[in-house]
Design a protein around this nucleic acid. Structure first.
Lengths: 338, 338
DNA sequence: CCACGGTCATTAACCGGTTAATTCCAGCGA
DNA sequence: TCGCTGGAATTAACCGGTTAATGACCGTGG
């Protein structure tokens, strides 16, 4: 009941282990007749290469890692990561690479996991997500020498390769659209302030508002949950000069905001316009369907995976800028009330 | 820049490789002084055991696998899997196990992945989800001899260990609650009909309705997407004797159904009651918040992980019945219109 | 003083592959 | 007939650890 090894094949074929190794790897050094015979026996007894034995000879582990540092409850709600992972998978699977996944409580643990994976030879490289400012992970990973691809803005990625998209452009497009509709007071319900992409969006938002001469723009930070999105919305809508449009950093808080508006007897989009970041089935399913900033997240993940595999293969890989999110107008945006 | 090995440590400590191995594994055969010295050197040069070399000696891979066979777009919307995975992770991480994840297009590929992982010694065991009737995976996995835990009903799990919860009880509780409110015409918008749990819920639904003498119960199957959930709802609500309550198999279709009802100028819960399966932030965020069948999905995953690790450790493991989903009434259910 | 038992450490062999170096032998031309 | 070439196969060594078997050294009790 033991797994068959090349020694078993060698015995049955009446040749040496080495001949079997050459034959199975398509290398020169065996006659075609012997090769065919060996292949037939291998197939018959269901031989598989032992990946541990191969890895011992310096071969790649054929696995890359992803450590996610977010509470489980938030991960469950965010379609983003699941879509990202499925995109990564799609690219990995064509090259027969596997994905090692671990959810960690904090960045120290995350680094420990990367160090362990790399030190033990379990992965050939890894992804880094949710970059924040002065992120200690960047320097540590550079020191480790492990191939790594940052999924996020290159400005904080140090010498690591990054795959990113221009959020600022998407923010500008959104604000210009809302301004063109006639909105003057626009608010932004943002995500975690320490994340780089949140700060970049914040700045782009403020700059766009000021450039267009919009008064009273406000930014409220949340932790991406529906609860905090709802609270932020309630606060914004309770102020005397409440905004006529709110831009949310993810879909769950946008939906929560929509709910709050309706609970406060405001009609969307007549009294309040709503824009969600990251389109998802959820945005389209509520009533009215949400105007959203949509992007192809699985493709984003696939791009990152491709870069990482190239990096593992020893190629020089430049950072890659993916398409910016595109504004997809739906029923939740309209001119402000007169 | 190479990784340090025990040979390096042995050289620096002036002892043999074996002494180092014994020392680092806390085994007898070395003096405390030598052991301390070896440990210090190991820590200093940052030694990590090469997992491939250990695996070669019959040690465990310290990794378990999960192959998911669902389209990426559906996975992205379903909080279920992400929560399940985070629960699995929580249990794995305390025993320093990693999770190997792969998304596959069909069950043949899924089996191929399991066979490869097992044959190559990459995993010590695996989870099986989304069981369907006469599932070929069960027999194949039994034949493989790989430790496996089915996350789903034991009736179709063959000799494999299963972790499951009694969906029938939850269905009965729901129908009895709706009947007590006065509903006579209840419909069910179900998931994929070939999945075991869908069929079990279908049967429990039909039986409960008949036992309570409810007329005109209907079941419509969908693929869990919001689109199909909306279409099914539209169809149900357009029929002459339309239902006064609809029970959905997941939250995304329930939200879609809610949207359709509102678009058809029906008030929820006055004109129509809605119940969602699997509570999520989404259910609570819409307006009105949805009455839902909630369960602790991360705990469910953790239970499965614990069983799998016990199985890997060679213990005899019985199947485990987790808590059934509990009905959590919210604003989307009320007595039917008079 | 010798046999015995217990530490502490060593050598040898192994896990399942890969790779370099070597041997064997047939075929060929000079 | 000799020497050379090249294909086909072999042996030996190695990757980084583990385990079994063996040996050296110490103190102790008869």
């Amino acid at each position: 009941m033991k797994r068959p090894t090349i020694a078993d094949i060698a015995r049955r074929a009446g040749v040496s282990k080495v001949a079997v190794s050459y034959a199975l790897n398509g290398r020169a050094g065996v006659s075609e007749a012997t090769r065919a015979n060996i292949m037939a026996i291998a197939a018959e007894i269901g031989w598989r290469p032992n990946s541990a034995a191969r890895a011992l000879n310096g071969a790649r582990a054929h696995t890359v890692g992803l450590a996610l540092c977010r509470p489980a409850r938030i991960l469950g709600m965010e379609p983003f990561f699941m879509e990202l992972i499925s995109g990564i998978e799609a690219e990995l699977s064509v090259r027969s690479y596997a994905l090692m996944l671990q959810i960690v409580p904090d960045h120290d643990q995350e680094l420990a996991v990367y160090r362990r994976w790399w030190g033990e030879g379990r992965v050939d490289g890894a992804f880094v997500v949710d970059l924040h400012f002065d992120d200690p992970r960047v320097a540590e990973l550079e020191a480790l020498g492990m191939p790594a691809v940052v999924i996020g803005h290159p400005s904080q990625a140090g010498s690591l390769v990054s795959v990113w998209s221009d959020d600022s452009a998407a923010v500008r497009e959104t604000i210009e659209y809302l301004a063109a509709l006639g909105h003057r007071r626009i608010a932004r319900v943002a995500g975690l302030p320490r994340l780089v992409h949140t700060a970049l969006r914040d700045r782009a938002f403020t700059e766009a508002c000021e450039r267009l001469g919009l008064t009273g723009h406000a930014v409220v930070h949340t932790d991406y949950t529906g609860d905090e999105g709802a609270r932020a919305t309630r606060r914004l809508l309770s102020s005397p000069d409440r905004p006529t449009a709110i831009v949310y950093d993810n879909d769950i808080s946008a939906v929560a905001g929509l709910s709050v508006a309706q609970e406060m007897r405001l009609d969307v989009p007549r009294d309040l316009s709503i824009v969600a970041w990251d389109d998802s089935p959820l945005s389209q399913v509520v009533h009215p369907p949400l105007t959203a900033l949509s992007r192809d997240i699985p493709a984003y993940g696939a791009h990152a995976a491709r870069r990482l595999l190239d990096l593992v293969a020893g190629e020089r890989v430049p950072s890659f800028e993916d398409q910016a999110a595109r504004l997809t107008p739906r029923g939740s945006t309209a001119p402000p009330p007169a």
